[in-house]
């Protein structure tokens, strides 16, 4: 008997039944194709402007910094943030159409390289697939326009998030994923990130910058 059937048959034996069939199977298939949502979290069920404000509030509570700017101000805000924090004015940037739409040439001092992050990159700039208002979380999907390493390797991660992409909770992100990638299809990696990397492993005291970025700056772009 294969290891696979050893386990699956063992489960069926313990559950006192054979392979699911008939109505029972139809019921779980139905549940899988139309997933029921859990209790909704009231605090994030808000009109869009308040949703954006809630996102910013929670992101800051989770040790990210937030700036709210217009599209034209994005490059200036990024350069300004790096300067204010004495960070290098060079960054690895995700090669995404959203980011390319900003006028980076306006920032003469800022040197950008498109592509995945390397070990020596101190700063990364990425877009975000969505923001979750409930917890101030940004959602990143991997693909040619967004290498995962940009979310993880550099010390400082600058995220450019459009207000329109801020949603209430995880469930809204799942719905957007299904719309964008097709039902039951997913990009290789979805990172949902809430503030900078941290650890409580020494005496339970939170310290930022364990393995991922020490700083996360979220630039929320007004429409």
């Amino acid at each position: 008997m294969s290891a696979r059937s050893q386990i699956l048959d063992g489960i069926r034996r313990s559950l006192h039944r054979g392979e699911l069939g008939g109505e029972a199977r139809a019921a779980v298939e139905q549940r899988l194709s139309a997933p029921p949502r859990g209790p909704s979290v009231a605090r994030a069920q808000l009109p869009q402007p308040e949703k954006v404000a809630l996102f910013c509030q929670w992101a800051e509570a989770n040790n990210a910094t937030v700036a709210r700017v217009s599209a034209a101000e994005v490059p200036g805000e990024v350069a300004g943030y790096l300067a204010r924090n004495n960070l290098p004015a060079s960054a690895a940037m995700a090669p995404s159409p959203q980011l390319e739409s900003y006028d980076w040439a306006s920032q003469k001092m800022l040197s950008l390289r498109r592509g995945p992050a390397g070990a020596l990159d101190h700063v990364s700039i990425t877009g975000a697939f969505a923001g979750i208002a409930e917890t101030g979380t940004v959602v990143m999907t991997s693909g040619p326009e967004h290498p995962v390493s940009l979310n993880l390797l550099p010390d400082t991660h600058v995220v450019v998030l459009r207000e329109a992409d801020i949603v209430s909770g995880y469930e809204d992100v799942w719905a957007r994923l299904r719309t964008r990638y097709g039902k039951n299809a997913m990009p290789r990696t979805v990172n949902t990130i809430t503030g900078p990397s941290r650890t409580g492993d020494i005496e339970q005291a939170m310290e930022l910058g364990a393995h991922g970025p020490r700083r996360m700056h979220i630039v929320v772009v007004r429409e």
């Binding site: 592509g115 040619p144 290498p147 997913m186 290789r188």
Partner: peptide
């Protein structure tokens, strides 16, 4: 915590066109 810092979904190996993974 309201949320852990990283919640990650991995689905299969890297795709054609992916720059890492």
């Amino acid at each position: 915590q309201e949320s852990s810092a990283y919640t990650t979904l991995n689905t299969g190996p890297r795709r054609a066109g992916d720059l890492d993974g």
